[in-house]
Simulated assay, not measured.
Amino acid sequence: MKMKFLLSSLLFLSSIQLYAQVKLDLEGGLVLGTNYNKVRIPNVGGTIVNLPEDLSIDPKVFYRIRAGYTIAKRHNISLLYAPLTVTYQGNFNRNINFNNTTFLAGQPVKVHYKFNSYRLTYRYDLISRARAQVGVGLTAKIREADVRFQNESFNTHFDNLGFVPLINFYVALKPSYRWSVILEGDALASKQGRAEDIFAGVAYQLNNKLGVKLGYRVVEGGADVDDVYNFNWINYASAGLLITL
């Protein structure tokens, strides 16, 4: 019985390895702009500003890296590193209280807005066919945020590190072997805030190891808590490489 159990276990592990795949998703492109980025720090006593409305945004190149591992065709585990820092500059038409520091109207000011994301995701593919793939899962996200206001007189910032649970989803439809239409992302809403990071686009498979993708990504959400009020909408023009090892 022990020998039979050992042989069965070896066969099972071999089958897992047979259907296991390592995948890399290397994405980059341009931050097209922000529909809004509303900030008030502190939430009580601070001045609310809409950064893209009050200031201008500098053009920004972005990148993100996802490493994934697929087991038995349906179980997907991935790690994502998605850094982002955008800079706004100009001058406000009114005095601004940010982080208990007053920035006077008409004075040149720069605002550096950092929103880095680190995520661990598990997704199960409910449908895994040649022409369609549909999956849902859970994402554990660590958010590293920092908002910095600076001018000739002051340089002050507010940083925040927090955990956010999200629902992950993935839909890919393949009209042909080489082409795919993709909708994927992480999203969740609660009383304190919400978060959405969604990509919509197309992918083209060059061969069985390498593909390319092109599309649009939106990151939207924020929080309304004791220390900070911040909600943003960021638009991306996105392209990337899809590598299977």
Rank of each mutant, 00 (worst) to 15 (best):
D159L: 03
S15V: 09
S56R: 02
G90R: 00
N232W: 10
F5Q: 04
P108A: 04
R74Q: 13
A82M: 07
Q21R: 04
K4N: 11
G68Y: 01
E184C: 05
A195F: 14
A223V: 14
V39I: 13
S14H: 02
P108C: 05
N43H: 09
L26Y: 13
N116K: 00
V49P: 00
T47G: 04
G68T: 02
S176T: 15
G46R: 00
S153V: 07
N208T: 10
N235S: 12
T47M: 04
P59I: 01
H157F: 14
K23V: 13
Y81S: 09
L18S: 12
I243G: 04
A189P: 11
S78C: 01
Q192L: 14
D25P: 08
V111Y: 05
A82Q: 07
E144S: 11
F5V: 08
N116E: 09
Y122S: 04
L30Q: 09
I16E: 01
R131C: 03
D146A: 07
N207H: 02
Y177R: 10
R131V: 10
T244R: 01
F103M: 05
G221C: 02
L126I: 13
S8I: 09
F115K: 03
D224E: 14
F115Y: 12
T70V: 09
A82L: 07
K4G: 02
V225D: 10
N151D: 15
D58Y: 03
F62P: 08
D25S: 09
L104H: 14
L241V: 09
A200Y: 13
L18C: 06
Y118H: 06
V218L: 11
A140D: 01
K23H: 06
R194Y: 15
A189M: 13
K60G: 05
I48C: 00
N235G: 06
R194A: 15
T102E: 10
K60L: 05
Y81K: 00
N116A: 07
L80S: 11
